[in-house]
Amino acid sequence: MKRRLFLLSGAAATLCARGDDAAPPPPWLHEEWEWQDEARERAVPVRIYRPREVQGPLPLVLFSHGIGGSRRGYSYLGQHLAAQGFASLHVQHVGSDRALWGAGSPFGLIGRLQAAAAPSEALNRVRDLRFALDRVLAQPSLALDAGRIAVAGHSYGANTSLLLAGAAVPQADELALADPRIRAAVLISSPPLHGVPEPERALAAVRLPSLHITATADDIVIPGYRSGAHERIALFEAIGSPLKSLAVFEGGSHSVFTDRANTGGVVANPRIKQATKELVAGFLQGVLGDGDLSQLSPWRQRHQELLARWVGPG
């Protein structure tokens, strides 16, 4: 198993080399592993963000990227969660990752995207998360709390998270998709469950606390597939979570929640990211802690002008 440890960003490392003018290191660090699921003959690369100084067992967030993404995406979220006392494990799904964009002729892109959205890959993505969770919990040196685990994802990754959180969909074999270790779900820009019989019934089966995040211009437009922002809200309304919250930002875009810097507006982009990472951390601190979500009320007040709609405490 190849292992790489990253203690500082390049900029921070340069500053530290200056001696007296050195800036303090960030409160987080990240590490990468090149895992292999031998049973499926499938690579499962991961990156974990965690606090630099660990105090007690860490709650864990299992993160799934969108189509064409990688373990190195959504770094703003992983870094913030680590700074707030979480471990955030970002899993790369090799059948639907960034290799799609450069693997072969541009004329074959639609076919590659369709293959990446096939039921077999959707199931493999869930199995990637379950495999990664098994592996990371088997490392006692990370000091993870097996009783405080959440799943999170963006776009296709939100669909993957739904399956792990208990969405009732037909399966090709007897392997259970829902993982009883998962205590909460964060669903960012979640597309509808296309191709799933009785999707409302499937969503009603999800009973974990759930946080849904979208934007009024959160439209998915890729070759062969379109999905409007209204479908994110419909999914929120259909999900069976007794405890659920929804944040809809004004404007934005589907990719504003990724690490891309300018999409959704040069001014709005960093503000939406800031509000998103604060909301995710606050929600998970509540539902994985004592259940107190009162801190979301001041969050709403701080970011009120960004919100087109809010459903939740306060």
Score class of each variant (00 low, 15 high):
226 R>A: 11
62 L>H: 05
279 L>S: 01
110 I>F: 09
180 P>M: 04
89 L>P: 08
293 L>I: 08
13 A>N: 05
15 L>G: 11
100 L>M: 11
192 P>T: 11
78 G>L: 08
17 A>C: 10
310 W>T: 01
208 L>I: 04
297 S>F: 00
285 Q>Y: 03
292 D>R: 01
301 Q>Y: 00
111 G>I: 00
179 D>R: 06
59 P>I: 11
94 V>S: 12
193 L>H: 11
33 W>P: 00
23 A>C: 07
64 S>K: 00
125 R>Y: 06
5 L>E: 13
106 P>Q: 10
255 S>E: 13
23 A>G: 05
262 N>F: 15
176 A>S: 13
255 S>Q: 09
91 V>E: 09
78 G>V: 11
20 D>I: 00
160 T>K: 02
293 L>S: 02
16 C>W: 10
235 L>A: 11
51 P>I: 06
264 G>R: 03
92 Q>H: 05
135 R>F: 04
89 L>A: 06
39 A>I: 00
257 F>N: 02
204 A>E: 12
240 G>P: 06
254 H>N: 04
163 L>F: 15
143 A>Y: 00
54 V>E: 01
14 T>I: 13
148 R>P: 07
131 F>R: 01
149 I>G: 07
238 A>R: 14
88 S>G: 02
282 G>H: 03
70 S>Q: 08
292 D>Q: 03
107 F>I: 00
308 A>D: 14
178 A>V: 02
44 V>A: 10
131 F>T: 03
174 E>D: 15
303 H>N: 12
292 D>G: 02
200 E>C: 01
49 Y>K: 03
83 A>R: 11
290 D>H: 07
65 H>Q: 13
203 L>D: 09
221 V>T: 12
271 R>P: 00
128 D>L: 05
90 H>K: 02
127 R>I: 03
177 L>G: 09
164 L>P: 09
260 R>Y: 10
179 D>V: 03
144 L>E: 08
312 G>S: 04
37 D>R: 08
1 M>Q: 10
221 V>F: 09
180 P>F: 04
286 G>R: 06
52 R>I: 04
265 G>K: 04
156 Y>H: 14
186 V>F: 05
59 P>T: 10
174 E>G: 14
143 A>P: 00
